[in-house]
């Protein structure tokens, strides 16, 4: 007798299709978010906040209520929603261009206020949707369409380490950086997301998970090479880890 051990989560729309490039990391993370919403059985009590960039089209994927936000402001929209509906689960889904570049002020203030929301930040070290320009998290030396000779610190400074900074905010209850390069890392990433959900569900504070994700199109690499690039290069600059966990469980 065979048992079903994995299926498409219910919190994804039945006829929804991810519209990302082949090998893009967004799909894996969105699927894990949907799985967790199923597992916590909070589909009817969740309001998702989309952002600007490849992270924008949540209403095309999720079987959830969705509010949109302008570039960088989804933590503010989430704050407004959560303050009015404190019994709902509210999360923002953002990229590094959104959460760590144009909206980093909003990110750290939301963390400092200890808003009971969860932020998932996909870090693929560039502005993916607009064609691969350098973002705040772009690596030194990384070639992008706006750093064609590679990011030079003397011209454009150094990569911003979002999770490390967010972890220093007093209102942050859980903060981690994860990768989705291998099945083992994907499981760890899901455990981190679960933690970031739980701190909100238990009213402990702000949850933040930065996910290193592949952008094969703008990196000009195959999907598999992109994953190797994350492991071998990006993780050296943006190291994985749990930077804060006020529940004390690791």
């Amino acid at each position: 007798m065979e048992t079903l051990v994995y299926k498409r989560p219910e919190s994804l729309l039945k006829d929804g299709h991810f519209t990302f490039c082949p090998g893009c990391g967004h799909g894996v993370v969105l699927r894990m978010i949907a799985e967790l919403i199923d597992e916590f059985n909070i589909q009817k009590d969740t309001i998702a906040i989309s952002s600007v960039g490849c992270s924008i089209f949540l209403e095309k994927f999720f079987n959830l209520d969705v509010a949109g936000a302008s570039h960088g402001r989804s933590p503010c929209v989430a704050t407004g929603v959560k303050r009015c509906k404190p019994d709902k689960f509210v999360f923002t889904y953002q990229g590094d261009g959104d959460a760590a570049t144009i909206g980093f002020n909003e990110t750290i203030h939301t963390a400092s206020r200890g808003e009971h929301i969860t932020t998932i930040m996909i870090n693929n070290t560039n502005f993916g949707m607009t064609g691969g320009q350098a973002s705040a998290t772009t690596l030194v030396g990384q070639v992008t369409t706006t750093t064609p000779m590679g990011r030079k610190p003397e011209l454009t400074g150094y990569p911003l380490h979002a999770a490390e900074i967010v972890s220093k905010c007093d209102g942050t209850a859980y903060c981690a950086r994860v990768a989705i390069t291998t099945p083992a890392q994907i499981r760890k990433a899901k455990a981190a997301l679960k933690k970031a959900f739980e701190v909100q569900l238990n009213g402990l504070g702000y949850g933040f998970v930065e996910v290193l994700a592949a952008c094969p199109t703008n990196w000009h690499m195959t999907p598999v090479d992109s994953l190797n690039h994350i492991e071998n290069v990006i993780e050296k600059v943006h190291p994985l880890g749990v930077f804060k966990d006020i529940t004390g469980e690791q």
């Binding site: 994995y6 299926k7 299709h17 990302f20 799909g27 894996v28 699927r31």
Partner: peptide, 20 residues
């Protein structure tokens, strides 16, 4: 072996069911 590693890695939920 029904480990579901393929499904968990798939960015498009194209491996939509795994049985063991």
């Amino acid at each position: 072996i029904g480990c579901a590693m393929c499904a968990q890695s798939c960015p498009d939920v194209a491996i939509k069911e795994v049985y063991r």
